[in-house]
Simulated scan of single mutants.
Amino acid sequence: MTARTYRFALRSIEERFGPGNFDDAGDAIVAALRDFCDQADRCSVDFSFDTAHANPWFHALVVAIDPLPESVCAGFLARLGEFGLQPTDR
């Protein structure tokens, strides 16, 4: 098990959940985690914003999950996709 960090573009969250509605996106992320991790309550989930880039296109919601078992990563990411959430590479 290892810690994993995912970045979600703020623009894509707002397109899916509405302007400034990051709480619902966070709820969806935690729900996806609970769907695929039988010990989700033992995971630490930390949310933060990265708005350091001058261009808002690169602003992101950063989600760190510790620990996240390798065995649940694929299902977790698939469920995020069903919720309209795709982590970015940057």
Rank of each mutant, 00 (worst) to 15 (best):
residue 17 F to E: 02
residue 70 E to I: 09
residue 78 A to C: 11
residue 19 P to A: 07
residue 18 G to K: 07
residue 29 I to E: 01
residue 29 I to Q: 01
residue 86 Q to F: 09
residue 37 C to P: 00
residue 36 F to E: 12
residue 32 A to R: 02
residue 65 I to T: 06
residue 12 S to H: 09
residue 73 C to W: 12
residue 44 S to W: 05
residue 5 T to I: 10
residue 55 N to T: 10
residue 9 A to G: 05
residue 42 R to N: 09
residue 31 A to F: 10
residue 49 F to K: 09
residue 44 S to G: 10
residue 8 F to R: 00
residue 67 P to L: 11
residue 60 A to S: 14
residue 54 A to S: 15
residue 23 D to A: 12
residue 10 L to S: 02
residue 7 R to W: 00
residue 56 P to Y: 06
residue 6 Y to M: 07
residue 30 V to F: 04
residue 26 G to F: 01
residue 50 D to E: 11
residue 47 F to H: 07
residue 24 D to A: 13
residue 3 A to N: 05
residue 39 Q to L: 14
residue 54 A to C: 04
residue 73 C to V: 15
residue 40 A to S: 15
residue 17 F to R: 02
residue 82 E to A: 12
residue 45 V to M: 06
residue 60 A to D: 13
residue 56 P to I: 08
residue 6 Y to H: 07
residue 8 F to N: 00
residue 72 V to C: 12
residue 12 S to G: 00
residue 68 L to A: 08
residue 64 A to S: 15
residue 4 R to Q: 11
residue 74 A to F: 12
residue 51 T to L: 13
residue 8 F to Q: 01
residue 26 G to V: 00
residue 59 H to T: 02
residue 3 A to D: 09
residue 37 C to I: 06
residue 56 P to K: 08
residue 3 A to S: 14
residue 59 H to V: 06
residue 88 T to F: 01
residue 37 C to Q: 10
residue 24 D to R: 14
residue 26 G to T: 04
residue 14 E to V: 03
residue 85 L to Q: 00
residue 38 D to I: 11
residue 19 P to M: 11
residue 24 D to K: 10
residue 35 D to K: 14
residue 15 E to C: 02
residue 9 A to N: 02
residue 58 F to V: 03
residue 78 A to H: 14
residue 37 C to T: 07
residue 3 A to E: 15
residue 34 R to T: 12
residue 2 T to G: 11
residue 34 R to S: 14
residue 70 E to M: 10
residue 13 I to N: 00
residue 63 V to N: 06
residue 64 A to G: 05
residue 47 F to D: 04
residue 25 A to S: 08
residue 24 D to I: 04
residue 42 R to E: 15
residue 50 D to R: 06
residue 46 D to P: 01
residue 9 A to C: 02
residue 58 F to T: 01
residue 18 G to L: 11
residue 83 F to E: 13
residue 8 F to D: 01
residue 6 Y to P: 01
residue 52 A to E: 12
residue 26 G to I: 01
residue 75 G to C: 14
residue 12 S to D: 15
residue 33 L to Y: 09
residue 17 F to D: 03
residue 6 Y to F: 15
residue 6 Y to I: 00
residue 49 F to Q: 10
residue 86 Q to E: 15
residue 34 R to G: 11
residue 23 D to G: 02
residue 32 A to T: 04
residue 6 Y to D: 01
residue 31 A to I: 03
residue 74 A to I: 10
residue 90 R to N: 03
residue 2 T to K: 14
residue 26 G to L: 02
residue 28 A to G: 04
residue 49 F to N: 02
residue 7 R to M: 00
residue 86 Q to A: 12
residue 64 A to F: 04
residue 60 A to H: 11
residue 65 I to G: 03
residue 59 H to I: 05
residue 59 H to P: 07
residue 58 F to A: 09
residue 78 A to E: 15
residue 76 F to I: 04
residue 67 P to G: 07
residue 61 L to S: 03
residue 80 L to I: 05
residue 27 D to A: 13
residue 90 R to Q: 06
residue 47 F to K: 05
residue 18 G to R: 06
residue 51 T to F: 09
residue 83 F to M: 07
residue 8 F to A: 00
residue 53 H to Q: 13
residue 21 N to P: 04
residue 12 S to F: 06
residue 80 L to T: 03
residue 65 I to K: 02
residue 42 R to Y: 14
residue 33 L to I: 07
residue 37 C to G: 08
residue 75 G to S: 15
residue 79 R to I: 05
residue 72 V to S: 12
residue 84 G to D: 05
residue 86 Q to G: 10
residue 26 G to N: 03
residue 43 C to E: 13
residue 84 G to L: 04
